[in-house]
Amino acid sequence: MTVNSGAAPTGREGGDNLLAVEDLHVYYGNIAAVKGVSLHVKQGEIVTLIGSNGAGKSTTLRTISGLLRPKKGTLTYDGQNLATMRGDKIVGAGICHSPEGRRIFPRMTVEENLDLGAFLRNDKAEIAADKERVLELFPRLRERITQKAGTMSGGEQQMLAVARALMGQPKLLLLDEPSMGLAPVLVDLIFDTIKTIRDQGTTVLLVEQNALAALRVADYAYVLESGALKLTGPARELAKNDEVVSAYLGG
């Protein structure tokens, strides 16, 4: 498979996609933030969206999770139409979103934040098992389990944001800038954990400004520029692409 320009078919348009976004257009008032983006995520993949600030990456995720509504285009997840589905129904269908900026509940404890991640569930035994799983993924959270979330470090809050999303038992996990503002050692930890999450059976759609780290863990990548697709292709191939290296990898 080769790297494609944004307008070219990618060969990923078949019926085996967990998520298919086709010709997505999203506006803020009269301003077009996303302009005809199409992307596809297959079960068991890590797919990443990379690009500079204002490229439309976070807007795309927010539209998938129901926080924004598209002006045009289709969003199909596991055979269901997301474009008209309420946000809570989207979570119930298996899409959970760890947003940019973490958005944890600062006055609540770590455990209370995790419990809120499971707010749509009533399977107490499985909730307890999932809580144990995320505490194994992020041992630091176990140490902080009774601590107010707002008193933790930025890295710990990011771990909590991801863990809280996992408590929704997602089939598809949306991660928006999970490495933002973190020290390099924590960036490595977060990306190692993303690989573990995928290995445990959760598909991941990752928005990330740290293009090098994202391309190292992803299977497939989409490069957005000014709200439109610039390039698509297998992550390893995009990491070698001269245009990508020059624009995003410091080459």
Rank of each mutant, 00 (worst) to 15 (best):
D88I: 00
I31A: 14
Y27M: 15
L18Y: 03
N122D: 15
I64H: 06
G150N: 13
E143S: 13
L19K: 06
L189P: 04
I190L: 03
E100P: 03
E100T: 01
G227S: 00
N113Y: 10
G155F: 09
G101T: 04
K71E: 14
T48P: 02
M85C: 01
A83F: 02
T109G: 08
E143A: 14
T10Y: 05
G66W: 07
S98P: 11
S153Y: 04
S38Q: 14
A149D: 07
R216F: 04
D192L: 06
V187E: 03
Q147W: 08
F191A: 02
K35Y: 02
T146P: 03
K72D: 14
Q157L: 08
P139R: 15
Y220R: 11
I145G: 08
L175R: 09
N4E: 09
A228H: 01
A161P: 11
K124F: 07
P170F: 06
L160Q: 13
I50M: 05
R164G: 05
V244E: 14
A239N: 10
S58G: 02
R198T: 00
E132G: 12
E243Y: 15
D115A: 15
T48M: 03
E126T: 15
D123R: 10
T74R: 15
G94A: 10
T193E: 07
D23R: 15
K240D: 12
S58Y: 02
D23L: 13
K72Q: 15
E132H: 11
N241T: 03
I190E: 07
R107V: 08
P170E: 03
E156L: 12
G227I: 07
F191D: 02
D78C: 13
S98D: 11
S58V: 00
A235V: 11
G101M: 04
N53T: 12
L114H: 07
G6Y: 06
T151A: 11
Y28D: 04
E136S: 15
Y28S: 12
T193Q: 09
G227H: 01
I197R: 13
K124V: 11
S58T: 08
N53G: 12
V245A: 14
A163C: 10
D199R: 15
A228T: 00
K42L: 08
L19V: 10
G233I: 10
N241R: 01
L231H: 01
K124D: 10
D123M: 02
R62F: 00
V244W: 11
P99S: 00
Q147N: 09
L114I: 07
V110H: 05
L67K: 08
V3M: 09
V91R: 10
S52Y: 06
R69Y: 09
L82R: 03
D115G: 12
N4W: 15
S98T: 12
E132F: 02
E136P: 01
A128L: 12
G6C: 05
I145S: 08
V41Q: 13
F138C: 06
V185K: 08
V162Q: 05
A20P: 02
D78V: 08
G94N: 09
S52C: 10
G36R: 07
P139K: 13
I145N: 11
Y27S: 14
E136V: 11
L61K: 03
D199F: 06
Q169G: 09
A55K: 04
R144N: 13
N81S: 15
Q169W: 07
Q147H: 15
V37L: 11
Y77C: 07
F191Y: 02
I90N: 06
N241Q: 14
E156D: 12
A33E: 06
G233E: 05
A161E: 05
N17F: 06
V34S: 00
K240S: 07
P170N: 05
